[in-house]
Structures are given as structure tokens and as C-alpha cells.
Write a protein that binds this DNA or RNA. Sequence first.
RNA 1: GCUGUUGUAGCUCAGGGGUAGAGCACCUCAUUGGUAAUGAGGAGGUCGGGAGUUCAAAUCUCCCCAACAGCACCA
Length: 659
Amino acid sequence: MADAAISSPIELEFPDGSVRPVEAGTTGRAVAESISKSLAKKSVAYSLNGELNDLAEPIYSSGKIELVTRTDDQALELIRHDCAHVLAEAVQEIWPETKVTIGPVIENGFYYDFDRNEPFTPEDLERIEKKMREIIQRNQPFEKKVVSREEARALFEKLGEGYKVELLDAIPEGEDVKLYSQGDWIDLCRGPHMVSTSQIGNAFKLMSVAGAYWRGDSDNQMLSRIYGTAWADEKQLKNYLHMLEEAQKRDHRKLGREMDLFHFQEEGPGVVFWHAKGWKVFQALVSYMRRRIEEHGYDEVNAPQILDKALWEQSGHWGWYRENMFTTVTEDERQFAIKPMNCPGHVQIFKNGLRSYRELPVKMAEFGNVHRYEPSGALHGLMRVRGFTQDDAHVFCTPEQLEAECLRINDLILTTYSDFGFGDIVVKLSTRPEKRVGSEAGWDRAEMIMQKVLDKIEADSDGRIKTEMNPGEGAFYGPKFEYVLRDAIGRDWQCGTTQVDFALPERFGAFYIDQNSNKQEPVMVHRAICGSMERFIGILIEHFAGHFPLWLAPVQAVVATITSEADEYGQQVADRLKAAGLRVETDFRNEKINYKVREHSLAKTPAIIAIGAREAEQETVSIRRLGSKHQSAMTLDEAVASLVEEAVAPDVRRKRDAS
RNA sequence: GCUGUUGUAGCUCAGGGGUAGAGCACCUCAUUGGUAAUGAGGAGGUCGGGAGUUCAAAUCUCCCCAACAGCACCA
């Protein structure tokens, strides 16, 4: 943006492919006006080579330009950012003593952090929202001003906005200091913004208040954060609010109680009481995973819950994970820890006896029950607990085998997710963090292999799997893949992980004997698919909204009689279904069929089999499926056959169909 | 762990300085019915725990515990 460039012409390529020469320094608005008055009026910003800019911003270099109107997807970010500014102005208009800090755009909306002695109340939110609509009505233009650091500092010091001064100091040298104002209200801001406040529209809503640390650091002061959501139009806003409502209906904590799956109680914060029905689901999931890991050549093992402190010192956990570990001291004053992870145990099994290169890869799996003393505020239903079961496995292999093993694991993970109906998967590769162990050469090699695997994952997926990089987010002991799945209502959950470990085999002195009779250190790969079985079930409950597919449902069918005269035949039906391997209950209570249907529907039983005098006489059944208002009549034989077929687990079906 | 809110019957919730209430669920009786609540009656709570103020505490104060919403954490 040097002045010398101003006179030279530049070329702008438009989305339709046309290219126009313009003078350098032309603003986005002028470009829009040169096309049409109405476009200029409609435009709220422009993007140059994918980067959003203020409409008033001059253009100094050639590139791909796109004029962004309010209804474009790209504008949503601007609407939200502008909304955050208006929120801050509204709060300061009502409570001038409030200090402003930052207000970024987030998924689905925005927030703004304030420093204020008194917390905001729900009533305050209504008041603020009203004020915001007022400010938007004023239709104040957003104006940018680039100023010197000194000027900005003087301004914010005068305003008493100490946090802004701090932010100002954090702006890297050589970067412009920009101020944005709407009317009299000024904020330090990177921009860009739309043209004026009225373009924000009306489709926003303040959602909640919460505490948040200044600059995200728990050593810092706690600020008051106001969350809001904002959309291009009312319909989008309504959809979003509806999604939230839907999520609330699916809340696994609520469904867990209603479906009698599990409970928590005060004496056991973060540990699950699995009820009979919940445990059925748990076991169905474990059985499925057992079949899958067998298919993939794993051996299931089981390592101890409690081990001497010395072992945890050797693994390193005692040093860096102790505050998360449950420990215990016995009468004779020996100190033990309850395992927070399974890896040290598996290394002991690997080390027991001498391993030959011929045995590799050794693949050890465990449904490992681990305990971690998670911070109290982190606990959340089944999603974050203190005692849980990992579908954990460790692969000990040679460096040459690493790539193939990662791909094999990838295959296992992806087919598993697809068996549960998760199709939308993102695989992320996290690379070396700042604090790490192992040689640079080791990291180079591992990251190279994993990058290659990542590329292959994407290439082999027909575009179904997205891949991403997470630079610097790897474990300190090695790079890792993270598998993120998207559920039925669009929420993302990180479940699976594949992690290469440079540290642990060495710490424990694990080795195998190679072709030349030399000791070699194996590469260790940690991997989990569900992550935590508890959490995965929580995700499944919300994904299916409690409507489990038949193979997972705790009770697959209820036989409900209409009159007590049908009880005998009802029992025969139930016995037949049970003999065929189905999970069946009977309901012979002295209640009307309406009552029974209602109750078992609310309990989300997949099939209600109603038996009356007619069925008893004709040896038929009347089946009503969950979610349907209708029922179908069929012979008992047909019913057994169709339910049995439907209850076949997807992996079993896949194998059967392949043979 | 931090900020804020909440904790009354199995569940959802009302009440609020004078020693507890509703609906559903539960139990009993009657009713034997055709696909989302049959009727009547009954039983059920030391109001999360502890301490204090008071003639009197479920109610006010303090401490603790747990849950909820965020934040921080999540090897």
C-alpha cells in the first residue's frame, strides 16, 4: 500500500470470470458503483483473494474480488462482529462505568467480555438487547481510522479503558493500529465491519451470561461475558433456536433418567451408576467393539487397576499427571495409584518375556477402566466423568510398519463410525508442540509418515472424509490423529485418536530382538475409537435422540396384552422372541392398551407388540414401531424373523453379506 | 479450580420466620379395554449437609457438598 503504487493500474477478477482494470487505490464501494448503483447499495464489504475488507477500503493489488452482500454466507461473520460492537456500546450506554475488553465472533454468534463489579442478570440482558436494537436503528456508519500507537494509547487511557491499552501493547510492531467507531462509540479493532449498524438487522438474541478469564488465563481476573447469537434473517435465527431446543430434548442426562439407563448421585461426583438397561447398551457396544478388534488382529488383555507409585514414577505420570490421579496409602504405608491410563500396564505385558521382531506388530487391546480426578467444573453427565472405560489399544511395531498400522487403524475407526450412522468425519493431524520429548529427526520422520497417511485417508475416501492440520497441538510424546464426528443435529465430537509415542517404550526399556539379534526399541502407537465408552454412549443417546437402532436398544420389544385373557399367548410370543435371542419384556399389567403404548413409547422401546383375543386366536401379532402411529399385523413366525434380522449388528451383517 | 445460578416427595415444580403443597409416578380396590394417560382411595418429605441468629428456621447469616451455564482444564 505504498503511495507509489497508487497511480499504477491493477486488475480485478470477478466471480463470473470477467477481469477489469481499475486504478490502484479505488475503494470497494467505487468498484461496486462502477457495476451498478443497486449493487453498491447492497454491498456491505468486499473480499479480495478470500480476505474480507471494509467496503471503504482502497484496493492496491490485483486479485480475485467479490462484493459481499448482507445475505452472503461471508457476511454472517461481519453481522456477528458488528453485533458484538453494538452490544458493547449498549452496555456502556446503560452502565458507563463498565470496562470493555474483547468481543469476537464465535460459532453461531459472538460474545463480549466486560469488567463490571456487578454481574449481569437475565433482566439486564433484555434491557441491553432493547438498547442494541435502538443503536441499530440509529444507523450509524462504521468508520475506520488508522492511528499511531501513542494516539490510541492516549485515547484509551483518557477513556479509562485499561484492557484496551493492554491489547494495544500486544499488537505486533509494524501492524496498523485501527480504531472503529459507530457514532460516538470507539473500539480498538482489527475489522472489517459492514457499512453501518442498521445492516446488522434484527435476527439476533442475547443468550447468556458467564464468567470468563481475561485473555483466557485462569491466573487472570474473571470478567463477565455476554453471549449472543446473530443471523442474516429471522428464519435462520429461528432454526438455530430450534436446534438448541432439539439439543435440549436430546440431552443424554434427561433421556438417561427417562429411559432408566443410568444415574449419578452426590456421593459419587463423576462416576456412573449404570442401571440394567444402560448396561445392556454398554454391553452391546463392548460386544461390537470386541468383534471388531478381533477382526483386526488385536489381542484383548486386562491390566491391574492399582499399581505401586514406583511404576507411575517410571512412566512419568507421577511427575506430570499426579494431581489428576486417585491415590491410596495402605496400612503398611505403601503408596498406590489407581490407573488413569492403560499404556504403562500394556508396556509391562509387552516387556514380560522376550519379544522377537517376528511377533510384531503386537496389538494389545483393553476395555480399560480408568479414573482421573477431573476438575469439578469439568464434569458433565456421561460426557466428562472421573471413572470411565476406554476402548484402548497399543500397537508395538517397527518404524517400517507404522504407516500400514496407521492406515489399518484408520480403516477400523471409519467403519466403526459408519456402523453407528456417523458419516461426516474430519481427521486432524496434530504436529509437534513446543514442549516435547524425542529427537527432531524422530519427529520429522513420524510427521512425514503421518502426513502421508493423512493424504491417503483423504484420497481414499471419495471426498467423504475431510482432513485438517493442527500445528503444534500434538502430544508431547508424539504426533497424533484426531477423529471428529458430526452427530444428527450437527454437533462435533472428538472421539478417536491415533498417537505415536516416542517416550514410553524408552522409559520402560521395552525392546524386541531384531533379525541380527540386536535389541531394538519398538514404536508404540496408542489408539482409541470410541475414546470413552461412557461418553460414546452419551453421544449415541443424543445422536439417536434415544431411538436406538434395534441392535443397540436395551429392550428391543415389549409384549403388551390388551386383555388378561391374552396373557398366556402373550407369554408364548415373548418366549419365542427371547428364544430367538431378542431382548424382550412383557407388560401384562391391568392397564388399557393406550396406557401401555404411551408408556413404552415414552421409554423409547423400538417395538410394541400388542396381543389381544384376535391375535391369540389367529396366532398373529400386531407390531407398532417407535415413531409410527400405525401398526402392522403379521404371523408370529414372520414377526420373529423380521425382528431377528433387523437386530443383526451392522458388522455381523457386513461379514455375512460379504461371504 | 474460577464466576454466576440452583438444591423442597421417585420426577416436574409451587410455597416461604409460626414446624410442608400440586400434578405425574408408587400402593390398594373397582374396571378386561384394540394402539400416547379408566376411576376412586391411600401412602410418601428431619425442605442437600453442618453451624449460627431467634421464643420459633425449610425460610435469615456463615461454612461445606452437589448439580447447572460458561471459563480454565481435557496425555
